[in-house]
Design a protein around this nucleic acid. Structure first.
Lengths: 252, 252
DNA sequence: CGACCTTTTGAAACGATTCAATACTGGTGG
DNA sequence: CCACCAGTATTGAATCGTTTCAAAAGGTCG
């Protein structure tokens, strides 16, 4: 597998979880990989990530699992701002330097490497490639936010959901070799609604229409298969190629 | 005036536009101020910002005026992702390192300092405080995006517009000494709609209700005055103090 | 099996959009 | 100075997409 963002590091780390560190690429892969392993912390599905004992503004690097970044209104309504998938990282510093203004919790069991601002800065100094990867990942994350805001503002239920599925497909394809467009999505309809700004009921109806039209199929609660990428892209209001170019990080 | 983010630099620069550089604070204020002046470029209202002649991924620093970051759907519908106000900066690099995936254009006449990635990196090396300010501004920008997404997803027209007004008020208060909550907003209702994900007609109705209830008042097309901050905050679903803490950058 | 959670479905209600017509505003030239 | 223009704001009425409520059907796990 070729490298995309942090993937080579996190991926090879995951492959050897708990086992002896098998030397892969000494000059690039090793140092950071060790750092990841050394700072890895496990979280259980449903658990919220908090950082009291740690530095004020930690940097997270997701090794496995899905994390949810969300924000809630006073009445308890929750909006999911973003998901963190394996290979993603986030500098959760808020504007005033205190803890993150976003709630972070694990949707599945997850492993996360956690660094203090200091450690992170030091690591980037030692590994310039890391610095650039961080910049690219951050830019990609912003681009995704922009795409979602666009569809949240203008664009109906079909477009929002089609886009979300497409985004998941692209992001997951990067890390796992997921052949066509089949992937696991550990979300219920309520959560999809919290992400797309729709009620769970309407998520249901909209996804049903996608399934009935044959564009996607669903097995179990988690496995999504995109049968007609072109059609889904059209509903989402983009072209897959272009979308990939815009929201996926590239190696420098 | 005390310092907030880039404000002291941009502010003092603006004060002396075209005049001789009057030494303010030699050890902190000067070097960056000169850099700003040296790279400043003017744009006319309505003009789109393009960077062909410049480096691929320039860093922009707004000295004066309002800039609009937007993205459009295939059918031409535009969503405003963010506004750049004086003192804001943006590293417009897209994920793949090519030009920004967002359209940037000037809503008013504007002055912008433009740096190449290289220049910017060098400047940050020479001025560590700049580095931290950039991080804080960037975090604040992300926090604002999250707040908007929250209201775009859950939350009706009242909440979205109330929030937008509150955000403008806070952001503008930081740079200009705008006493109470009176500020200039160079946007027509169409543009407010493009920002809040509403039709211009509904923006009209909603703002009218705000005016009729006495919470805000409007003079001319541009001048907004918030008469009852508490009421507006309640509609927006926050508390001003808390919001300010979350979305406004702090000095390190 | 029963308890619980999620998905599905229908019908009514609601909020926002659209369309279309009318008033207002600031800027232009006669 | 007024008449006119283009752009913008305002208003009403009909329509549409989504939400809400409520109830039934599936799934999963003890």
């Amino acid at each position: 597998m070729t490298e995309i963002g942090f993937v080579p590091f996190t991926q090879s780390l995951k492959d050897q979880t708990g086992k002896r560190s098998q030397a892969t690429d000494p000059k690039r892969g090793q140092p950071f990989q060790c750092a990841l392993a050394a700072h890895a912390r496990g979280f259980k599905a449903g658990q919220e990530l908090t950082f009291e004992g740690d530095a004020a503004a930690p940097v997270l690097c997701v090794l496995s699992g899905w994390l949810r970044l969300s924000k809630s209104l006073a009445d308890g309504q929750r909006q999911i701002i973003d998901f963190l998938l394996p290979g993603d990282f986030v500098a959760s510093a808020s504007a005033d330097g205190t803890a993150s203004t976003l709630q972070i919790d694990a949707l599945t069991d997850a492993e996360v490497a956690i660094f203090s601002e200091i450690q992170w800065t030091r690591m980037k100094r030692n590994r310039p490639d890391l610095h650039w990867q961080a910049i690219h990942l951050s830019a990609a994350s912003r681009a995704r936010l922009a795409e979602r805001i666009l569809r949240l503002g203008k664009g109906g239920a079909q477009m929002r959901i089609a886009y979300a599925l497409l985004e998941f497909c692209l992001r997951l394809k990067a890390t796992r070799g997921s052949a066509n467009c089949k992937f696991q999505m550990p979300l219920n309809q309520q959560q999809i609604g919290d992400f797309t700004g729709l009620s769970s009921v309407h998520v249901c109806r909209t996804m049903r229409r996608l399934v009935d039209s044959g564009i996607i199929s669903i097995h179990g609660h988690l496995e999504i298969r995109i049968n007609d990428v072109a059609a889904l892209s059209k509903l989402a209001g983009t072209d897959v190629q272009q979308l990939s170019r815009e929201i996926m990080p590239r190696i420098a």
